[in-house]
Design a protein around this nucleic acid. Structure first.
Lengths: 115, 115
DNA sequence: TGGAGAGATCGACGATTATCGATGGGATGT
DNA sequence: ACATCCCATCGATAATCGTCGATCTCTCCA
């Protein structure tokens, strides 16, 4: 009669069996791409601002908001754009960014949890 | 009568106003910490395996599952541990990992979306 | 037509990261 | 006691990343 359920009762030295991979590799890479884009304080705050703004936001306002140089702000926004998280529209000399309209349901759910 | 709603009709050259920061800085850093821990294919798959496993998983099984060296697997698991995402329990020679039992609601929701 | 402002890109530099081989430390069994 | 196995840590190396100054393109307006 077994009272204690040991974590791994039948483990044997020298025998290691790989667990099944539950996620498709393509899905993993895709999720990692989005996660890396969000794993930065500046970019995460950018996404938070865009998610709460009904109007598109001029990138010059981000340059005014963060204590970073203009190239750095542009670089961070480019990373969000390459990850497919934001859309850009230019009007005159200004560039306006907004949350991407065609976000995957999973990505949108991710942003709903995060920001 | 305005038919077209322009993105920013009243913008003036040289005038940029920083948007309000919607998230507390501490929350941002905390989220970034978790995101950086998950923003790696190996670690994201590790979390996926642990989330689907009712039993704790011996780390030697991860070493067998991934095409990476034993120190690298140990390093990745340590990063998950430092981020508070997994708990470890040692039994004899073996180290068993499982998803952290005391996860923040936000973090758990994040994992539910991701894996 | 020419100057000025906005924003993207380039090149460089320091910091962080992913990876490995080598080593150390604890538990097991002979 | 000693060899063996598992796992963590250390040290090194190559790659990626964040940041900035300099520069380029484009648009607008005088």
């Amino acid at each position: 009669m077994r009272f204690m359920k040991s974590p791994a009762p039948d483990r044997v030295k020298g025998v290691c069996s790989p667990p099944a991979m539950p996620m498709a590799l393509a899905k993993v890479d895709q999720s990692v791409e989005v996660l890396k884009a969000l794993a930065d304080p500046t970019r995460l705050q950018m996404i938070g601002i865009l998610k709460r703004s009904v109007e598109p936001v001029c990138i010059c306002d981000f340059t005014a908001a963060f204590d970073l140089s203009q190239p750095t702000i542009s670089h961070h926004m480019a990373r969000l754009r390459e990850a497919g998280l934001v859309d850009v529209s230019k009007s005159g000399i200004w560039a306006y960014y907004r949350l991407a309209s065609r976000l995957e349901a999973k990505t949108r759910a991710l942003l709903d949890v995060l920001v």
